[in-house]
Design a protein around this nucleic acid. Structure first.
Length: 587
RNA sequence: GCGCCCGUAGCUCAGCUGGAUAGAGCGCCGGACUUCGAAUCCGUAGGUCGUAGGUUCGAAUCCUACCGGGCGUACCA
């Protein structure tokens, strides 16, 4: 519909320019730049142009300008007149809906699952980094938000034509993993995930918790952990072996969670492999005079150029920090795959970190460092406050998915649909995933959010399952249509028959999808797709509630409506994919 | 202290490149299943858009100050 908006914008601007000439006003054509809007009520029209801004140029009341426009079209372009209405200082356009209907439905039929895709980032290599778990504990709700956003933004980039690579960075090095290792060595008694029957990442996480309780009584615990990190960096075989074992446990467990939640990556990076490169880059930078050394041997970056303080890059004992490692990782990645853009999906608490990282990369002379957006998202809190691992108030990812799945199962049973559904377990998991992803992505990434477990598992209202239900209902309707195919054999699609107000609305919504995909991509904001999905579903459910699709005596009407219904389903599916809602034809 | 983000209905959130009566879900109250699946649909009530100024024909939206909240400002990640 955007092309129609532009067409009318130009047409009206041209007309206004002619009027200004007739009135002897000397302006340039570019000075007339109308704002394009949507009228508050569809009855008023489909496109709106407020004329206020012209009042100054024309030295006239906008209401008068509107009527001047009408007179102009009466004299010069009578054909257009039937689409134009004035409402005070507004010009409203009622578009030729059947022309649009034909075009949109044809377009959706032709493109199928590609409908909505754009060329916005055509020929651009875009890398998206997300998830980035530590290897000392399983994924919690905060990670789940990260994963949902990362996955969705990746799909948005790809939908907008980008050559995409999703990367994960496993934080398998550092003091945190040493804590789990130390506790395991002290209290583990050579048990394993297999011997205890505990999911392997949870098994490791339990020792991290154990460390923290232990450290409360034993003050040397922290020091011992630090010593262990040094041993690790110096390559102690015993420590390395334990590290390998425990990392493998955590990572394989986390990968199971990814699989269950539909998360995937093209490439994994490991901090343990990139931190050394970071260190050598920092040392090189020091030799080139970009960084400086303190008396204790630590190496620092001076950030006064960007109005920040200073930042340590290598500790006095020579070991690396998070930042050092991130420098190395970024460089390694660009060498592996020369991206134009690398999107970091990382929590807002790390904004400072990225400001520093990007600045340092630029100082080191990497041109690509100009194009590294930090997609900063807000924290996930609980209704009664923050998630605190030490207070045991974190919501575990696996537990949550499991809980949602059970609820979904119960819901399906309660609706008496267990026998309809082919695979109860799979369907319940899909419903759970849809609920979770929609809940997490509905909120603008930049905002902190409150995750209410009770609300997330409620399936009524503006939720993932509501959207899935629309998809299932449409599928069901289409099955019925196929069953009665013979009755409608003679029917023909005719866009002129889709003239109900609700049909007009649906067509307009469908036609705006590609533009929305572009916008969501530009803003890296999946919540726009969520709002769109709800709007589309809401409009559709109202429509089919009020209008019998298969009941009409006129076969052409039935066939035409079915075409519309199919188009709605296609767009629903395409949008589902972008926000990680599994499509179900029965539920 | 300084930097960044946020403050919209009882709750959770949309709306923010300024435009026509500020929207939705939940919750509350009340309607609609002999008819394409009621996980649905429709309606009622509920808001000085944190406060005060400013810019503008016009401000929830832009600017300034203040109030309230979050995050950061580590040789943690």
């Amino acid at each position: 519909m955007n092309d129609i908006r532009l067409k009318w914008k130009n047409k009206l601007e041209d007309a206004l320019f002619s009027i200004s000439n007739l009135n002897g006003i000397e302006i340039k054509r570019e000075q007339i730049d109308l704002i394009v809007e949507t009228p508050p009520d569809p009855d008023m029209g489909d496109i709106a142009f407020p004329l206020f801004s012209l009042a100054r140029i024309f030295r006239k009341n906008p209401v008068t300008i509107a009527s001047d426009l009408i007179s102009y079209f009466e004299e010069n372009d009578k054909d257009s007149l039937s689409f134009i209405n004035t409402a005070g200082p507004y010009i409203n356009i009622k578009i030729d809906i059947s022309e649009l209907t034909g075009r949109v439905i044809e377009g959706i039929n032709a493109s199928g699952s590609e409908y909505g895709n754009t060329q916005e980032y055509k020929n651009q290599k875009v890398m998206v980094e997300f998830s980035c778990p530590n290897t000392n504990k399983p994924l919690h709700l905060g990670h789940l938000r990260n994963d949902s956003i990362g996955m969705s933004v990746s799909r948005l980039m790809a939908a907008n034509g980008a050559d995409l690579q999703k990367v994960n960075l496993i934080n398998d090095r550092g003091i945190h993993i040493c804590k789990s290792m130390l506790a395991y060595r002290k209290f583990g008694n050579n048990t394993t995930p297999v011997s205890t029957g505990i999911k392997s990442d949870h098994f490791v996480g339990n020792y991290y918790v154990k460390f923290n309780t232990w450290a409360k009584e034993y003050t040397e615990a922290e020091t011992e952990a630090r010593n262990m990190l040094k041993e690790w960096e110096s390559g102690s075989p015993e420590v390395t072996k334990l590290w390998e074992t425990m990392n493998e446990w955590t990572i394989s467990g986390i990968k199971k969670t990814y699989e269950k939640t539909g998360i995937s990556f093209d490439k994994y990076y490991f901090e343990s492999k990139t931190y050394k490169e970071g260190r050598s880059e920092v040392l090189k930078g020091f030799e080139d005079g970009i960084f400086y050394k303190e008396n204790d041997g630590s190496i620092w970056a001076d950030l006064s150029e960007i109005n920040l303080d200073k930042k340590v890059l290598l500790r006095s004992d020579g070991t690396s920090l998070y930042l050092t490692q991130d420098i190395g990782t970024a460089i390694a990645r660009h060498r592996d795959w020369a991206f134009e853009r690398l999107i970091y999906v990382v929590g807002s608490e790390q904004q400072y970190h990225f400001q520093v990282l990007f600045y340092i990369l630029k100082k080191l002379g990497f041109k690509w460092a100009e194009n590294l957006p930090h997609l900063s998202y807000g924290m996930v809190n609980l209704p009664d406050g923050k998630m605190k691992s030490r207070e045991g108030t974190v919501v575990d990812g696996d537990d949550l998915v499991e809980e949602l799945t059970e609820i979904a199962k119960g819901e399906i049973a309660a609706k008496g649909r267990t026998s309809e559904v082919k695979n109860l377990q799979k369907t319940s998991e899909a419903v759970a995933l849809g609920a979770l992803n929609y809940f997490l992505l509905q909120i603008s990434p930049s905002k902190d959010m409150i995750f209410d477990p009770a609300e997330s598992i409620s399936f009524s209202g503006n939720t993932g399952p509501y959207l899935q239900y629309m998809g299932a209902r449409i599928s069901s309707m289409l099955r019925k249509y196929e069953d009665r195919r013979d009755e409608f054999k003679e029917g023909n699609f005719n866009p002129d028959l889709l003239i109900l107000e609700q049909e007009r609305e649906l067509i307009k919504i469908l036609s705006d999808f590609p533009e929305l995909v572009a916008e969501a991509g530009r803003e890296m904001n999946p919540s726009l797709i969520c709002s769109y999905l709800y709007d589309l579903s809401k409009n559709f459910s109202r429509y089919y509630h009020d209008t019998p699709i298969l009941q009409d005596e006129n076969r052409d009407i039935v066939v035409s409506r079915i075409e519309l219904v199919r188009s709605v389903l296609q767009v629903l599916k395409n949008a589902f994919y972008l926000v990680g809602i599994p499509f179900l034809d029965r539920m």
